[in-house]
Amino acid sequence: MLDELLTPEQRLEALGLELPTVPSAVGDYEPWVEANGIIYTSGQLPWIDGDMKYTGKLGDVLTTEDGYQSFRISALNAIAQLKSAVGELSRIKRVIRLEGSVQATPDFTEQPQALNGASHLINEVFGGRGRHSRMIFTDPGMCLDCTTLVVLWAQVEQ
């Protein structure tokens, strides 16, 4: 476990990760909205430099490990959105909720293990402030054929 005294940016560096360029909206909406000290991100996909890294359904050609990695990328994009909202990630007082959606076959049942890719990253980056509630949704067809989507709710220090 990383030192609790490190900032989230220092934790990212220690993990060998760099926040991606903030993805732009793919429709008529805001990438994030702040209301009453809570940041709500829009759904973040597994983009890296404009390339969708994971497409298709878990339980078909894709494995639970593929889902884990796809959720990790989606979460990294959601963290980048938080940073664009608040400037410094140390302003995040608490990650409140993680919601994940996964494109999967009807008989796929390992959604929670796949969503751990996002949960583990959030907890590594934010330490105790990253401990969150979560929900996962399964969809037989996702936008742009993406495999995963992540939404974060985070409380901001005022």
Rank of each mutant, 00 (worst) to 15 (best):
W32D: 09
I48L: 14
M135R: 12
G141Y: 11
L62G: 08
V156C: 09
G67F: 00
V61T: 12
Q111S: 10
I136T: 14
T105V: 04
A114P: 15
R11D: 11
D66P: 14
I48E: 12
L6F: 06
G117F: 03
V156K: 15
L2R: 04
S133K: 03
I92M: 05
R131P: 07
F137D: 05
G59I: 02
E13A: 14
I122Y: 02
N36G: 11
A154T: 07
V95P: 13
L115D: 02
E124T: 06
N77V: 05
M135L: 13
Y68L: 06
D51A: 15
N116I: 03
P106W: 02
L149H: 07
D60S: 15
E88S: 14
F108W: 02
N77H: 08
R72M: 07
I48V: 13
Y68G: 11
Q158S: 14
E13C: 00
G27N: 04
E110Y: 05
T148Y: 00
F71Y: 04
V125L: 06
K83R: 09
R91V: 04
L144Q: 10
F137H: 10
V156M: 09
A75T: 11
L149I: 02
Q111P: 09
N77G: 05
P112V: 00
F71R: 00
P140E: 15
S90D: 14
V26P: 03
T7F: 07
F71C: 10
S119E: 09
I48K: 15
E18V: 08
A85F: 01
V95K: 02
D66C: 10
F108I: 00
E124C: 12
R11I: 05
A118C: 05
G50H: 03
D60P: 04
L45V: 05
L121R: 01
R129T: 10
F71M: 08
L144W: 12
K57T: 09
A80K: 06
T147Q: 07
K93M: 12
V95M: 06
D139T: 10
R94K: 14
G141H: 11
Q113L: 10
P20G: 15
T148K: 14
L58I: 02
D107M: 03
P20V: 01
I73V: 15
C146D: 12
E13W: 03
P140N: 08
L45H: 07
S42G: 02
G128I: 01
D3R: 07
D139I: 06
D49W: 03
D107P: 07
M135K: 14
G127I: 03
G87E: 10
Q10D: 13
R72T: 12
L2W: 04
Q155S: 15
S84P: 01
S24Y: 04
Q44D: 04
